[in-house]
Design a protein around this nucleic acid. Structure first.
Lengths: 217, 217, 217, 217
DNA sequence: TATGAATGAGCCTTCATTCAT
DNA sequence: AATGAATGAAGGCTCATTCAT
C-alpha cells in the first residue's frame, strides 16, 4: 500500500536478480543484496522468509516478465498466417526474450540466472517449467506439425524442437566462447536480427530435410 | 614418483572432478573431497596450492581426456572422404564426447562441469578454449566451407557453426527440461545414435538453405 | 476496559504461560506466543513493555491462582484439629497444588515454570517468595513446632521443613527420571493420593525420630 | 598427545561446564566459552562438532567425575555393615556429591546443570540415567529392602526412595529460597554434615513408620 | 488499541587456509 | 609427503524491539 514499503520489497527483488545472475545462488550473499538495496539484512528474511524464498521469487519474476514482454506466440500473429511465418515469429520472440536488453539480456543479464536454473534446477524451477516452458514448447510443436505435415513421426518433431531451441539458446550459453573465438560478433545483442534470420533459414532447411526423409521412408 | 604419492594426488583429482561436477565450485568443499578420497584436508592445499588450483587441474584433465578419446575429427576420416561424411563424423564425435558415459556423460557426469565453465568461465577455462575449443571450431569451419562452397559469406559460416554446435550441446543443457516435458527420451544417453542422425540431417538441410540463399543472392 | 482489549491481553498471558513452561524463558519467542494467541508481535511489547515484563506477570498469575485454589492451609482445617491432621492437610494441599491438573500439573504443566524459577529465580520470583512461599513455610513451621514440641531445636524444625517439602517437590523435579526407572508410577498424577499418604506417614515417622532424639539429648 | 592440544579441548570443556551451569544451554554462547578459554570459536566446533556435542560431553564429564569421587556406595562400606550404616553412607555420598565443592557444588556449581537436566533432559541425559542414576537407585532399593524387611510392599520401597532422594536434592533445588527465608543456613555447603545427620535420622524414622504400618496391615 | 514493516545485534556454523610436526 | 589442530573471516538466520500509522 505505502509506496516505501513496496519499494523495499521491490528493491530487494531487483538487486537480488542482478546479483544472483552475476554470481550464482551460492556466491550471492544476502548481505550484499541488502547493502546494494540499502536495507537491513533482516529485511530480506522478513519479506522472503529466507534466501531460497527470495531466489524463488526472483526466478518467477523474471519468467513472468520475460514471457509477458515477449510471448512465445507473438500476438501480432493470426491464424491465417502461414506456419512458416509463425515459426519466424516464434524464433524472433524467443531470441528477443533471451538475448535483448529489453528481455533477459543474455548471459550478462538475467539470462545467466535462467541458464543456471536449466542446468541445475531448484525447486523454484519445476513450477516455472510447467507454467511457462511446457506451453512454450507445445506451441512450437504445433507449428512444426503444420510445417512437416501430419504424416511426420512424433520423434522427428521433438528432435526438431530441440534443434531449433538449441540454436537460439546457444547464443546465450556460448557467449564467453564467442567472445574469444569470434569477437567480431560481440556483443551478441548487436546482431539479434541477423541471428534471427539465420536461425529461421537454417531451421526451415532442416525441417525441409526432415520432411523429405519422411516422404522417402 | 612414489606410487602412494601419485595415488593421493590422483585420487583427489578423481573425486574432485565428480564433486565439482555435481555441486559446482562454490558448493563443493575441500573437506568433502578429502573425505571421499580418504585423505586429510590439508593434503589438497599441499598438492594443489588452493581450491582454485585443484579446480584448474580438474578442468584441464577432463578436456584432455575427453578430446583424446573423442577427437573433433575422427581419425578414421580421411581426406578423400566427402565433406558431408566428415560433418557426420564431426557431429558424432562431438555428441559422443559430451553425452556418452565413455565421454563426459552429459549433465549427470563431468559434462555439467564443462557446461558451468562455459557459462561462467574461470581463468582455467580461457586456456582450455585456446587449446581445445578453437581448433575444434576451426575444423568445423573448414568442413562447412567445403559444403557451402567458397563463395559463402563468412558470417553464414560462423552462424552455422553455432547452429550445429547449439543443437548438440542443447541435449546437455536442457536435460532437466527434457526429463520433464519429454520423459520418453530420457536418459538421453540411450538415444545417442538417433540424436546424431537427426542433428546431421537437420544440419544438412539447414546448410542447403544457406547455400541456396547465397546462390540466389 | 473494552472486552477485546482484555481478551488480547489475557490471551497473550495464557499462551505465554504454556510456552514459557514448556520451553523456558530464553527458548520461548514472543513471535511464537503472538502467533498462538493470534495477535501481532508488537502487541506483546505494547501490553507488557517487554518480554521480561510479560514473564513477570505470568509468574505472578500462576502463583496467585495456584495458592488461591490450593491454599497452604486448607480452609476446612480448624484450630481444634490435631497438628498431625493439619500436617496431612498441608501436605495434601501442597501436593495437589503442584501436581494435580487442577493445580500446576507437575512438570508437564505450569509446574515446570515454577521449578525453573526456583532454580534460577528472576526478579519476578523474589516478590513471589515473600508473598506466597514464606507464609507457606511459616505455616508448616508452626505445625511442626506443635508436633515436635516446644522444646525442639529451631534447626531441627527448619531441616524438617526441607525434608517434608523436598519429598513433595521431588515428584515434580524427578518426573523424567521416574518415567524411565519406574514407569509403572507414571503419570505421577494418577497416584496423587497414594503419594500423599506415603509422604504423610514417612514424615510423621521422621518427626517422631527427631522428637525422640531431642528428648534423649 | 601434545599437552597443548589436550589443553585446548580440556580448557573448553572446563569453561563450558561453568558457563552452561551458570546460564543454561540456550543462554550460553560458544563465543563466550571460546573467549574465556582463550581459543577461537571454530575450535569448539572442531573438537565437539557443535554446541550440542559440547554440551553432551560436559554432562557426561560431570557425572563420571562426580560418581567416581563420591560413589553411590562408599567403598569403605563392607557387606558385614548393617543396612542402617550403609544407608547413612549412601546419604552421605549422595549429599557430598551434589552439594560439596569437591563434588558438584550445589546450585552455584555444576549442580545447576544437572538440576536443569533433570527437569528437561536432553538426549545426553537419557544415557546418563542408565549409566549412573539407575544403578544408584538400585543400590538404595537394596538397602531399603533390608531395613524394611522382605515383607514390605514394593510400592512402599519405591516411594521411600523418592522420599530419601527428595530430601537430599531439595537442598540443591531450593537454594535460592533457603537463601531468602533461612539465610542463617547459607551457604548450604557449610552445613553438610548437619544435613546428612538430619536426613539420616528423619529417613530412619520414616522407614520405621513404613515398617510398622506394614506389620499392622 | 493494535499492527505491519523494518532494524540492529548477536548467534551458530561452515570453510579455506595455515602451522607445527 | 602428509596430517591433525587451530584459526579468521564470513554467512544465513533469529529475535526482541521500535516506529509510523
Amino acid at each position: 500500500m505505502n509506496p516505501s514499503q513496496l519499494s523495499t520489497r521491490e528493491r530487494i527483488l531487483e538487486y537480488a536478480g542482478d546479483m544472483f545472475g552475476k554470481k550464482g545462488f551460492k556466491s550471492t550473499t544476502i548481505r550484499m543484496i541488502a547493502q546494494e538495496a540499502g536495507v537491513n539484512v533482516a529485511a530480506v528474511n522478513y519479506h522472503f522468509r529466507d534466501k531460497e524464498g527470495l531466489y524463488a521469487e526472483v526466478i518467477e519474476d523474471i519468467f513472468s516478465k520475460g514471457f509477458a514482454r515477449f510471448p512465445s506466440l507473438d500476438p501480432k500473429s493470426d491464424p491465417a498466417m502461414s506456419a512458416e511465418d509463425r515459426l519466424k515469429l516464434f524464433i524472433r520472440g524467443t531470441i528477443y526474450r533471451i538475448l535483448s536488453p529489453e528481455g533477459w539480456g543474455g548471459l550478462n543479464g538475467k539470462g545467466r540466472l535462467i541458464a543456471r536454473e536449466m542446468m541445475e534446477p531448484t525447486s523454484a524451477f519445476t513450477q516455472v517449467i510447467e507454467t511457462y516452458i511446457r506451453p512454450h514448447k507445445d506451441r512450437l510443436v504445433a507449428i512444426l506439425w503444420e510445417i512437416v505435415g501430419k504424416g511426420a513421426r512424433q520423434e522427428d518433431i521433438l528432435l526438431s524442437v530441440v534443434s531449433i531451441l538449441g540454436q537460439c539458446i546457444y547464443y546465450v550459453y556460448a557467449t564467453s566462447i564467442i567472445e574469444r573465438v569470434a569477437p567480431e560478433y560481440t556483443p551478441v545483442e548487436n546482431n539479434i536480427d541477423k541471428i534471427i534470420d539465420h536461425v529461421f533459414r537454417f531451421s526451415l532447411g532442416g525441417l525441409e530435410n526432415i520432411k523429405a526423409d519422411k516422404e522417402i521412408a
